[in-house]
Design a protein around this nucleic acid. Structure first.
Lengths: 199, 199
DNA sequence: GCATAGTTGGCACTCAGTGCCACATATGGC
DNA sequence: GCCATATGTGGCACTGAGTGCCAACTATGC
């Protein structure tokens, strides 16, 4: 049964270390604030050296926004997996289901909400988040373009569709984190995406 | 005829200094690259002290992205000036005319194009640009919400409309700066905005 | 048990950005 | 013109993020 692990030991250790550091850092950020927490604080709490920290994370920002690399991949795979004859807007909405699940996951809710607040309150982090989202946008635009036979490199329309869809996610998320979360994230996203239609 | 100047002397000197520094910096960035140009390089070329530089610009980034403060204001005013019974999407397109003019201005073309390339090639600058755009988005969303009787704070839809419109501007700009500029920016923007319709 | 590849920590460095203070310059009232 | 005051400037020392380099350590394969 146990399929031979394709992930070497060192890589697994590395990932575990990353996860542990991110967790610890996020607790510190939630407690004292992002800017008030220095890398020195973090490495002291983690019992590693500053130099080693920067071998696991390329930047302080990466501690908070690292998850976007995984998201990006999931979103792209999610969209690619949708049937080609489905309306694009619907396909995008379905691809976003992984994000919806993430925000509605009770076990992660507290931590992820706290981090979204941290991002929301910090311009530098917001900027980084948006930049990462724009990378996802580029990848989604490629897929949208492939479906509609339009080159995203020369035709702005696939990029616009992808960008508008992601704007819906961001807008829904903003309402979600700044209000009382009375309405589920999925509902907010449906409402957001219902406000637009590709021509 | 000469209406008494509402701008005090000091403020005018300050603006002139800012403009001169930004020009000089942009020339350096275009020549050696953004990251390769240090603040020390700049202040040496400008003949001022490092400390004084930071009284005119809050950050290195500000040298490139400072124009967004002015843009933001123009866009908001432009949208507010549109008739209330005009379709929102059309009003937004018209508000963007100032941006179109900016990019099609021959005298500024070379410099502005070079700076857009610099931004495009630098993740940190792209991030900053997107963050500033998202601020504009917030302001435009307020106006859109006011028109449609929806609170942007609790309803994602006004934000989605504003975000989608700005996504069109960004998408059109990206095509414009990365291709041969064979088609005018205004045309690209029309095409981009034509790919979406608010429901 | 040994060679070696990969991991870690320490150190010194660069660069952006800030607080503080002393000095210079402009402005307004007399 | 003279002085008090507001504002602008420069220097200095400091913090904090991020990097290059090297020496010491540790795990892995034979």
């Amino acid at each position: 049964m146990k399929q031979s692990t394709p992930i070497p030991v060192r890589e697994r250790a590395r990932r575990a270390m990353r996860a542990e550091l991110a967790m610890l850092a996020q607790d510190l950020f939630a407690a004292k604030g992002y800017e008030q927490t220095t890398i020195d604080d973090l490495v002291a709490a983690a019992g590693i050296s500053r130099r080693t920290f920067f071998r696991y994370f390329t930047s302080k920002e990466d501690l908070v926004l690292g998850k976007y690399d995984a998201w990006s991949q999931m979103l792209v795979e999610g969209l690619a997996a949708r049937p080609a004859d489905e309306p694009v807007w619907e396909s995008l909405r379905r691809a976003f289901d992984v994000v919806v699940e993430y925000f509605e996951d009770v076990t992660l809710a507290e931590r992820s909400l706290a981090m979204e607040q941290v991002i929301h309150d910090n311009p530098a982090l917001s900027a980084g988040e948006l930049e990462r989202i724009s990378r996802v946008q580029g990848e989604l635009a490629e897929l949208v373009g492939a479906r509609t036979g339009r080159q995203a490199a020369t035709d702005p329309r696939p990029t616009v569709i992808a960008g508008a869809a992601l704007a819906c996610v961001v807008a829904a998320k903003d309402v979600w984190i700044t209000t009382d979360r009375g309405r589920p994230f999925g509902t907010l996203l449906d409402e957001a995406m219902g406000a637009l239609k590709p021509v």
